Each structure stands twice: as structure tokens, then as C-alpha cells.
Computed example of a mutant assay.
Amino acid sequence: MTERSLRVVLAEDSVVLRDGMSELLSARGCVVVAAVGTAEDLLAAVAEHGPDVAVVDIRMPPSHTDEGIRAALELRKRWPEVGILVFSQHVEAILAERLLSAGAAGVGYLLKERVARTAELVDALHRVATGGTVLDPEIVTGLLRDGTRRNRIDSLTPREREVLDLMAQGHSNRSIAQRLVVTERAVEKHAAAIFMKFDLPPTETDNRRVKAVLTYLTETGSGA
């Protein structure tokens, strides 16, 4: 995004916060093409303006529960090229898992109270807009639940690490197979080996892929 300003759609139901963030981002060189207060308006704004990234609060009208994250999931489905930064005061690990399960590339989740400077927010927006992943450590901890143990990356074979790196970029097993010129079955075997080495047994929700990616991002320093 060096040749032009980052184009941002901002979704925040608090008028004061919305106006304040718009001014701060504009002062840092971003172009806030739309600032809205509902999930419905967020989807309409992205459809109209085609931004580089959308900043989304989780709890929005009318119920103030998960409207924002549901809108973010819809954005991922309809406009996968648009980066999404969830910017909330709440740690919602289950909702974060739903968003990340669609692919970690171009996704961020930061806590409002832990962003000390506008420059940090702008940097996160640029990283997400260019396909990176930015996660607050509290979000990672909430998703992993059992904590992160170091050096598990070192236990992977070079091929397993390639597979995990592509997982972290948001590729499906089919896409990984095409990129590595192997069969989907081979990718599945590598993924199973990764899950075993990371001590991620099958669960009812089968969220091992998300946890493996989060472990990788944490231990390699690729996340927040």
C-alpha cells in the first residue's frame, strides 16, 4: 500500500469513538471512506467503496452481541480480498475462532484498551490489508486455552512447516496440494502429523487447524 493511502471502512456503534477514530486515522494518512454504526451499514459500505480493510467492533446494534463478527464472516465470504481488523474491548475467543477458521490471512483482532498509540493501530491495519495476521496475545491465549509451549515448530519436518505456513496464509488443503505439487491426501497426512506434534487431539468442534496456526504465529513471531 505504498503507492496510495490505505482505504478504510470503520464500523463502530459509539458515535464519539467512531468520530475520534476517523480523525486519528485520517491524521495518520489513512482515507476513511465510510464510518458506520451498524453491521448492515458495514456490509453496504464495503460493497460501495471496496476498501483495503474494514475495522469492526464485535458488539453492535440491535442486540449488541455478535452482529459485528457475523458481518465480518459475511465480508470474508463475499469480499475475501478485504482485510478485517476486529477492534473490541472484549475478549471473545469463540467468536475469534469462527473468524479465523475461514483463514488467518488478512485478519486481525486487537483489544482497544491495549493499543497505546495510533501508530500501532495504523501499522496493524497495513499488515492486515496486505494479507498479514495481527492478534493480541490475550486472544491467542484464549484460543489456545492450554497455553503455548515453545519449540514445537522445531519438531516439524521442512515439508510440515511448509504446509503449516500455507495454512497460516489461509490456504485450503486443496490449494496447499496445488502449490506444493502433491496430493490432497499427502497434505492431510502432513496436517495430522502437525496436530500430533502440537498435542492437538480431535475435539467436538475440531478446531485443531485454528490452534495449529495460532501456535505457529505465536512461536514464529508472525502475529501481534
Rank of each mutant, 00 (worst) to 15 (best):
residue 106 G to L: 08
residue 4 R to E: 04
residue 117 R to L: 13
residue 54 A to D: 03
residue 218 T to C: 10
residue 169 Q to S: 15
residue 96 A to N: 06
residue 82 V to C: 04
residue 109 Y to H: 00
residue 202 P to E: 07
residue 102 A to P: 05
residue 121 L to G: 03
residue 172 S to E: 09
residue 159 R to C: 10
residue 205 T to E: 15
residue 106 G to F: 10
residue 149 R to S: 13
residue 123 D to K: 10
residue 108 G to I: 10
residue 215 T to N: 12
residue 189 K to Q: 12
residue 155 S to T: 15
residue 153 I to D: 07
residue 214 L to F: 09
residue 51 P to M: 06
residue 45 A to G: 08
residue 69 I to P: 04
residue 5 S to T: 06
residue 125 L to V: 01
residue 131 G to S: 02
residue 5 S to P: 05
residue 172 S to Q: 11
residue 119 A to F: 00
residue 194 I to K: 10
residue 11 A to Q: 08
residue 144 L to V: 15
residue 14 S to P: 03
residue 202 P to W: 04
residue 161 R to L: 11
residue 204 E to G: 13
residue 195 F to S: 08
residue 219 E to T: 14
residue 99 L to S: 04
residue 220 T to A: 02
residue 185 R to M: 14
residue 195 F to P: 09
residue 4 R to G: 03
residue 36 V to S: 00
residue 105 A to K: 06
residue 150 R to D: 13
residue 158 P to A: 01
residue 134 V to H: 03
residue 133 T to C: 11
residue 140 V to E: 11
residue 27 A to N: 02
residue 186 A to P: 09
residue 168 A to K: 05
residue 98 R to C: 12
residue 206 D to S: 15
residue 124 A to F: 01
residue 149 R to M: 11
residue 210 V to W: 02
residue 95 L to M: 14
residue 143 L to D: 00
residue 50 G to S: 14
residue 52 D to P: 08
residue 126 H to C: 04
residue 137 P to E: 08
residue 174 R to N: 12
residue 8 V to P: 02
residue 20 G to K: 01
residue 7 R to Q: 05
residue 215 T to A: 10
residue 130 T to G: 03
residue 32 V to P: 00
residue 99 L to K: 04
residue 90 H to S: 15
residue 37 G to P: 09
residue 224 A to G: 14
residue 145 R to S: 13
residue 137 P to K: 07
residue 210 V to I: 06
residue 135 L to T: 02
residue 14 S to I: 01
residue 164 L to T: 08
residue 209 R to E: 12
residue 146 D to P: 10
residue 115 V to G: 07
residue 51 P to N: 08
residue 197 K to G: 12
residue 122 V to W: 03
residue 147 G to I: 06
residue 48 E to L: 05
residue 98 R to S: 15
residue 97 E to G: 14
